[in-house]
């Protein structure tokens, strides 16, 4: 446990002494804030229009603006993190391999699981730190919303983003463990995320077996439920097992480095 904590602390320290954490968090907040503002203003405008039309034609206005804001906002956030998470994970192992410090870690009395979990938790923690300020947006909106926004939808949305982030981080760190170059790690990770994102593009709505498999594997499809306030067990299982897979593969890579034959 102490070893895991030491790895975690070093990794966190590493994020904040290098510009990477500030850049990633900064870009994320800038984009998230920009999109939140746009989503909100467009939806508010639309709801005014709807109200005016309702007055003219005598139909009751039916628009739940906060729910729509949540849904759109989480949709945007999930897409932004596909681009940003590769930057958080690219250095995790690639840099250690390049510097030879992985040899230090692997000849120290800590298990590979401690190394992998320490790094995974550090990246996940930074990810949470990155998300936290966006809570303020919703609280601000809640102050002026009548009736109060459906907070449960917000919570399930954040849970979804967290699970998605964990899955992406574990896959990203696996790819980082494969190479000594951060650039290659980042590019490959990004390529993988894009692939997982558009996996179901060609088979949307298809009912064939392969079509359903591809749809199931598409990484953002599971996210829609969360953004709408539905916590679907199958989606939950999907993200958790994807995280587990990434961690397992990373462990195997570290182990394989000892047994390599070249």
């Amino acid at each position: 446990m102490r070893g895991l904590l030491a790895i975690y602390r070093r990794e966190m320290g590493g994020y904040f002494v290098s510009p990477i954490a500030y850049v990633v968090v900064g870009i994320f907040l800038l984009l998230a804030g920009y999109f939140f503002y746009n989503i909100l203003s467009i939806l508010v405008e639309r709801s005014f229009m709807a109200q005016m039309q309702a007055q003219r034609f005598g139909q009751p206005p039916e628009m739940d603006v906060p729910s729509m804001v949540f849904r759109n906002f989480f949709g945007i956030v999930s897409t932004i993190i596909l681009f940003l998470i590769p930057m958080l994970t690219m250095s995790l192992y690639a840099e250690e391999r390049k510097r030879g410090t992985l040899e230090l870690l692997m000849t120290s009395p800590i298990t590979e699981l401690q190394i992998v979990m320490g790094k995974f938790l550090a990246a996940l923690c930074l990810f949470v730190v990155m998300l936290l300020p966006t809570l303020g947006y919703h609280i601000l909106m809640g102050l002026y919303s009548e009736p109060a926004p459906p907070w449960r939808v917000m919570c399930s949305g954040y849970l979804g983003v967290f699970l998605l982030g964990a899955a992406l981080i574990s896959l990203g760190s696996f790819i980082s463990s494969l190479t000594e170059s951060q650039i290659i790690a980042a590019v490959m990770t990004f390529a993988l995320f894009l692939l997982l994102w558009v996996l179901d593009a060609g088979v949307r709505g298809a009912t064939t077996a392969s079509g359903e498999v591809l749809q199931y594997l598409s990484i953002l499809r599971h996210f829609d439920d969360f953004a709408q306030g539905v916590i679907d067990t199958s989606s939950l299982v999907f993200y958790v097992s994807l995280s587990g897979l990434g961690i397992f593969l990373t462990l195997r890579t570290l182990d394989a480095m000892r047994w390599r034959t070249a």
Partner: peptide, 25 residues
């Protein structure tokens, strides 16, 4: 100590040694 010392350039000497001490138990 491997041929090239396994150092983290962005750490200070004593935080680095503390880190190594911790992972060494």
């Amino acid at each position: 100590m491997p041929e090239s010392p396994p150092l983290y350039p962005e750490m200070s000497v004593h935080t680095y040694l503390e880190f190594v001490g911790r992972i060494k138990g």
